[in-house]
Structure formats: C-alpha cells, structure tokens
C-alpha cells in the first residue's frame, strides 16, 4: 500500500529543561505506519534546540508570538503555506492555542487541517475555572481560587491552610508556606504570566499524569497513564514510567466522553495515600512526554493527524506498563551560518 505523504507544521521545538512537545510529536509522526511526512518546524525563538536537531524538521520558519496579534500570525502562516502547501498544523503551546482555535476555519479554508478542542472546551478547563469544571463533570479537584489583586491575599488564612500552591494561568507553580512567600510568588507569576493567579489547596500524594486523545465525539482514541519518577526544579518530568491504573483510565475516558474532547490532552492528578484522585490541571494539548506513549505502543501524534485528515481511527485498546523514559542533555554543534540564515531570512 502506498502511504500518503503529508506536510505537517509543528510548534514547540524548545527542547530545553522546560520542554515543548514539538520534538516528541515529530518523532511520533516520523514513526507513523500510515503516512510519510515532511516536517515544517515553526519556531518563536532562534535558539530552540529542535531547530538544529538532526532528523527533526525538514524546514524551519520563524513565526511571530501570538501576542503580536492574530493578523501578523495568520499572515506568516499564509506565507509558509504558499511555500510549503501545509496539510496540517499541530500547535503545542497553551499560549498559542487560542489563536489557532480562533482561526481554525480560516486555516481550513486555506486547506490546512487542525485537530483542536473548541474554545468552550479550552476555556472551561482553565486553571481558574477548575472548581466549576470539577463540579460540572463530577471530578475531585482541590479547592482553588483565582486572584487578580494582591490585596485579596491578606485574608487567605480564612480560606486555606498553608502550605498552598500558587500557579500562573499558563505555566509556573510554587508551594508556599506563609503569606510572605505567597505575596512574593504572586508578584513573580503575575509579572510573567499576568493575572489571574491561582491559589490552590495543596494535596499530599503522588503526581500522576495521563496523555490522551479524544475524537471530538466522546471516544477516547488513546490514553496512557504515567508517574513522574524524576522531577526538575521547574516541576517537569525528567523521567517517568507507564502505569497499570484502571482508575486513571476510567477518569480519563469519562471526562472525554462527557466533554466530547477533541484533540490531545494531558490530565495531571494527585493520587493520595487512600487512593483518591484529585485533578489538578487539564492541559489542552499533547504533553512533552508523549513519546513515552509511543514507547508503550500508542502513537498518539499519528492518530491525531489521521483524525485531522478525516480518517477513521480505531481506538488503542492496550499499552505496555513499566515502560520508562529518561531525558538527557546533549550538546549539538552548529555553525553560525545556520543561526545567521534563520535570523536574516526567518527560515532555515
């Protein structure tokens, strides 16, 4: 059988100690059994490691940050599409998703497929909306409030016992043990990510995660649970292992069924000593550890592209447990001419 060849654009090439999912997504796509790929890497910064990694992207384009405005962003995508004839785009950053979702129809008119959650799905699972989300879908969530003004923290003792978690709306989370630490970290997060800042009850337990893919009709196409074995000071998994945990899968399938989730997602949960699960975050995209799912037998990036292309995808029924991943750092040697080319031309 002749496999189709798709040109797929991927963001999130920042394979740093706070890695984006771009490189593992590309690895999954390159290992696809059902199609061949030409990969177009979309980079925001000119030192994202994925730009320079061998066998990763066939071509790189710099794109403007979504904060530069949707119009500039779409113009650049139009230009890239005129050069590359993109079949599909897989955005991998929370902060850019809104721009892609808002322009989904425009992209489709151009002939570029995406497979994203709806704006409603995206908004209701926001960290700031987690309590109402938990109530609506009958999921245990830690108590949390969204705070926009530092003066609102002065009576925090009436609502929470320390320690509490203080979280940015997109990224960053710190455990704080007193009001001074809370105020300091509130300012730190607010200046970086804006408000609201989320104050969340600290639940003692083990952090466990699921990577999953919903087909938008309520079906779970794939899901793999994992426990972080090695966590960096940024709270990122540097090593992890797949788990045999039916309860986590049940929570995932149930959530996808009820929300009719469309696209990739990561569920972050805390499992307590008495085997209760608390949902602490729902990330509306494929996580950076998605290649572990490939290792365990579920190629979710491949399935996502097939869904985007309108192809019927059979749900994965199994995966291997006890499969581990360990990240590593590795020095790539490049030439200044590559850097120059990207800087001057905006492509490489």
């Amino acid at each position: 059988m002749v496999k189709p060849k798709y040109t797929i654009a991927v963001t999130g090439l920042n394979n740093t100690d706070n890695p984006g999912p771009g490189v593992p997504v590309i690895r999954g796509l390159r290992e696809s059994d059902t199609f061949d790929v030409r990969i177009i890497g979309l980079a925001y910064e000119n030192l994202e490691p994925g730009i320079y990694m061998p066998n990763t992207a066939d071509k790189i384009y710099q794109i403007p940050y979504p904060s530069a405005g949707g119009e500039a962003f779409i113009k650049k995508i139009e230009y890239i599409h005129s050069c590359e004839k993109l079949d599909c785009i897989i955005p991998n950053f929370d902060a850019e998703l809104y721009t892609f979702m808002k322009n989904e129809k425009k992209l489709a008119q151009m002939g570029i497929k995406t497979f994203l959650p709806s704006i409603k799905q995206f908004e209701e699972r926001h960290k700031a909306n987690l309590p109402s989300f938990g109530k609506k879908y009958n999921i245990n969530v830690p108590k949390s409030i969204a705070v926009t003004n530092i003066s609102d923290l002065s009576n925090i003792n009436d609502k929470f016992d320390f320690p509490v978690l203080v979280k940015g709306k997109f990224y960053d989370a710190y455990i704080v043990y007193n009001l001074e630490q809370l105020q300091y970290n509130f300012n730190k997060i607010a200046s970086k990510w804006g408000v609201p800042v989320i104050i969340q009850e600290y639940i003692q337990g083990t952090e466990v995660n699921v990577v999953a893919l919903g087909d938008g009709k309520g079906n779970t196409i794939g899901a793999v649970p994992m426990r972080k074995q090695y966590i960096t000071d940024k709270g990122k998994a540097w090593g992890g292992i797949t788990l045999d945990d039916e309860k986590m899968l049940e929570i995932t399938r149930n959530l996808i069924k009820k929300t009719r989730w469309r696209g990739g997602m990561e569920l972050e949960m805390i499992k307590t000593e008495d085997n209760k699960y608390f949902m602490i975050e729902i990330n509306p995209r494929i996580p950076a550890w998605v290649y572990l799912a490939n290792g365990a037998g579920q190629n979710l990036p491949e399935a996502l592209v097939n869904l985007a292309m309108g192809i019927n995808v059979e749900p994965y029924k199994t995966y291997k447990t006890g499969i581990m991943f360990i990240r590593y750092s590795y020095d790539l040697i490049g030439n200044i001419s590559q850097f120059e080319k990207l800087n001057i031309n905006g492509e490489l």
């Binding site: 083990t206 994992m226 426990r227 074995q229 992890g240 292992i241 797949t242 788990l243 045999d244 945990d245 447990t321 006890g322």
Partner: peptide
Amino acid sequence: KNIAISETGFIFNPSTGD
C-alpha cells in the same frame, strides 16, 4: 496479582510505578 518479581529480587508494582 499484578506485582512482577524477577529471579534477581527486583519487584515492580505497575499500579504505582514503584
């Protein structure tokens, strides 16, 4: 039931990853 034990004495609990 799902606990795996090797002859070398390595135990793996696939439910918890321990």
